Simulated scan of single mutants.
Amino acid sequence: MSTYTKTMNPAQIEELEHRLKDCTKRKTPPYALYQYKTSDCVITAYASGKVVFQGEGADFYIDSLPSEKKSTPAASIKEQFPQCGSDEVGTGDYFGPVVVCAAYVKQEQVSWLKSLGIQDSKAMDDAYIRKIGNQVMSEIPHSLLILNNAKYNQIHSSHNMVAIKSKLHNQAYVHLQKKIGMLPSLCVVDQFVAENSYYRYLKNEKEVIKNLHFETKAENKYLSVACASLIARYAFLLSFDAMQQRYNFSFPKGAGKNVDISIQNFVEKYGKEELYNIAKLHFANTNKAKIM
C-alpha cells in the first residue's frame, strides 16, 4: 500500500474536495478538514495544509492533481462562442458505465440553452435531465462515448482510471472534430488531471487533440461543458435503466454501503461471474461484499 503526503493551499484543498464529491465521505478525523474513500484510496485533508493519500491508487491520485494554478481566464473567454467542452460521469459509481461527452455550442444556441437552465448535471435533478436530455442531444452537436463495465474491467487491468478518462476525452474530441469539420479555438476539459500528465497518457494514441484548455469546475463556468455534462448524465441514466430492466434488479448509484448489500443480493441471484458485466470490480465494494 502506498502513502503520499502533499502540502496544498486552501483553494487547492477546496478544489480537491469538489473533485471527490461523488466518493464516500468518512467521519472527519481529529485536526482534519475532511476524509474521502475512493475505490482504491483514502484521502485525508488536514487543517495544516497537509493532504495524505493512502492505498493502492495513491500514486495515481497524486499524479492526477492539477499543476499549480494558472491565471484565471478573463470572463469574456467563458462567453466566447463557438466553444467545445467535455465532461464525464459514472466514474464514482460501482454499477453502470463510464460516459464521456464532448459538446459543441454556437452563439445562436446560447439563449435557448440558458432558458433551459443548463448547468452542471450534478446540480440538476435526474428527472429534469430525463425531460430535456433528448432535446439537447438532438440540437447540440456532440460526441458520446459509453464504456460498458466488461470493457472497463478489461482495460483497467492495464490502465488506471486517470489514463482511461484521458483516452476517452481525447477520443470524444477526435470524433467531434470529424463530425463538425474543425474544432473552435476554445475547447475546454473539466480538469481531472494535470495538463502535462493528460498528454503523457496519450503518447501512444494515433490522433491527439492539442491546445485544449484545462480548468477545474468548468461545468459551472462554460456552457459547452455544462451541455457535455448533461448529455453524459442522460446517456448514463438510459444505460442504467436498460441494465435494471435486463436483470430485473434495482441497482443503487454511487459506491456507499447500500452498494455492498446490493452486490451480495445480485450475486445470490445471478452469480459472481456476472458482476464483470455490470460493475467496476476494482472498487473496494467488491472486497467489502466478501463475494470474490
Results as ranks from 00 to 15, higher is better:
S2M: 01
N287W: 06
N204K: 15
A127S: 03
D241E: 11
A123K: 15
K37H: 05
K69A: 13
A102Q: 06
H18A: 10
Y198G: 07
V42H: 04
S250K: 08
K114L: 15
V189I: 00
L212D: 01
Q109T: 11
F251G: 14
Y234C: 05
K217S: 13
N285A: 02
K27D: 15
Q177E: 04
V51Y: 08
E195Q: 11
A45F: 01
G181E: 05
L113C: 00
K210Y: 03
K167P: 02
N248C: 09
Q35A: 12
K179W: 04
K27L: 03
I180L: 06
V225L: 03
S197K: 11
G254V: 02
N285T: 01
Y247F: 10
P30Y: 10
V225I: 03
V136T: 03
T28H: 07
H142R: 01
E139L: 10
K21S: 09
A235I: 06
S143C: 12
K50C: 11
M182R: 14
A228T: 04
G96E: 08
D190A: 13
D40V: 15
D87E: 12
F236P: 08
D260M: 08
S39V: 02
A289T: 00
C187A: 14
Y270K: 03
I146W: 09
K122P: 02
V174H: 13
A150I: 07
Y104Q: 01
A279H: 00
V188F: 01
N258Q: 13
D22I: 12
F95Q: 08
D40C: 08
N265V: 09
Y104T: 03
D63I: 02
L145K: 07
A228L: 00
V52G: 13
D40Y: 11
H156S: 15
K179H: 09
N134F: 11
Y152R: 04
A163R: 06
L223P: 15
E17C: 09
K272C: 06
E56I: 05
L238A: 13
N9A: 07
S138Y: 04
I62R: 06
G254L: 08
D87V: 03
